[in-house]
Design a binder for these strands. Sequence first.
DNA 1: GTCAACGGTTTTGTATACAATTTTGATTTT
DNA 2: AAAATCAAAATTGTATACAAAACCGTTGAC
Lengths: 240, 240
Amino acid sequence: MYTILILPNTKKGVKLHAMKQRRANQIQEALEHAIFVGEFSDGDRLDEVTLSNRFNVSRTPLREAFQALAASGFVELQPGRGAFVRHPSPTELVEMFEVMAEMESFCARLAARRMGPEELQEFRKATDDCDIAREGGDPDVYYWENERFHALLYQASGNSFLASEAAKLHRRLQPFRRLQLRGRGRMNQSMDEHRTILNAIDAGDSNAAAAAARDHVSVQGEKFTDLMSNIARAKEKPAA
Amino acid sequence: MYTILILPNTKKGVKLHAMKQRRANQIQEALEHAIFVGEFSDGDRLDEVTLSNRFNVSRTPLREAFQALAASGFVELQPGRGAFVRHPSPTELVEMFEVMAEMESFCARLAARRMGPEELQEFRKATDDCDIAREGGDPDVYYWENERFHALLYQASGNSFLASEAAKLHRRLQPFRRLQLRGRGRMNQSMDEHRTILNAIDAGDSNAAAAAARDHVSVQGEKFTDLMSNIARAKEKPAA
DNA sequence: GTCAACGGTTTTGTATACAATTTTGATTTT
DNA sequence: AAAATCAAAATTGTATACAAAACCGTTGAC
């Protein structure tokens, strides 16, 4: 009855845990990337045998990857017909960004109310790191610091379910968001908005924090036209 | 004892497109129900061979169902170890309801801004149907009209991605929400709140609509204690 | 007595074989 | 010529076989 208190292999067990089942996951990520860069167009069917050969696996793990892709919305699984890639339409993208904006807004609102001193410290650090990256001028470096900023914001909501859902949607929009940062002066604008969010949270002003986070993510005005032109450009060059 | 696990026979007469791939889906729903009613406790491993025998299927479609359950958060898939059921803790439930409240609030806000006359007509009809069901006094009848009310609210946001995500979370919270309606006077309270939401949307008052929808879903005050006691009661009676 | 190592057993992960369904294309009918 | 028919081919869905890893009780060393 008390044997559960004795864990024989705990020391080595740490490494043993996340070892397998990586196959379907790797395939999933590879296919996600392939879909995004345009190797597969909207409506294309992902052929099981072809991809099995390409990845040197059987159809079984491949189909598992298909299901994961379907759960993330990258493909649509039509029973008896196959997996068809689903590129988000401009309308869908705007809708997704609209939801993302609201989620980040809510995270910021909760963060302003709930964030503790040590979390705030870390958040401020991440914001400063963004600034350092901005000064460096490399969009890719800034991109990763930006990722950390947003991840911390989600955590700071104090609602781990919300944080998880926000991260999920964020990941799905990742490629499009990345394009957004390449425009002239976009990094500076993003940085300013980060500061505004941080200051509002620091001041405990939940309404201001919510508004700032919403404006940061919302695709309106120039951001909207930027997004549209990026989509159009991505469509022009199918296979990078 | 196993009656709930028996799958309905597949009809062969249907020639529509979505005919196959139903197997994993049926299994998924059966397992969802079995998990919710408490046949499996938190942390239990779902044994593949045992369940294969119960459902009279091979491990392949069963594992597909596992993946779908994992995507919905009902189980956690540990590589090399198996599928372990994850009952939401009270904390998680509160978090999920907090997010649900914010999503419905956003739907209502958008609906107040965007809803057209014909949609409004339908929405009003659904609200009236709720009232009729309330007068009938049967919580189950009211439950279904209530479902329609919320589904229409999601659609009315004019953001189909938001509507889809809201419906997904709504479905996940469905069993807990259902328990909420059984308390004394809960139907009347719910109905009043529906009216408030409808009136705010009708008046085009997006702030009022957002607030009303948030209050309707939010678990605070009595609703919070009700939810907690329902959870406790569900834990007492493991297998219904 | 505790801990580590070991081998048999169980369970999961993957490959392959088979069944069922859909697609395709040629042929026939109107 | 367009539509319907139907059988062959291709493709997905499912079952089973096999490989690899995890679990478990035992044994042995310290």
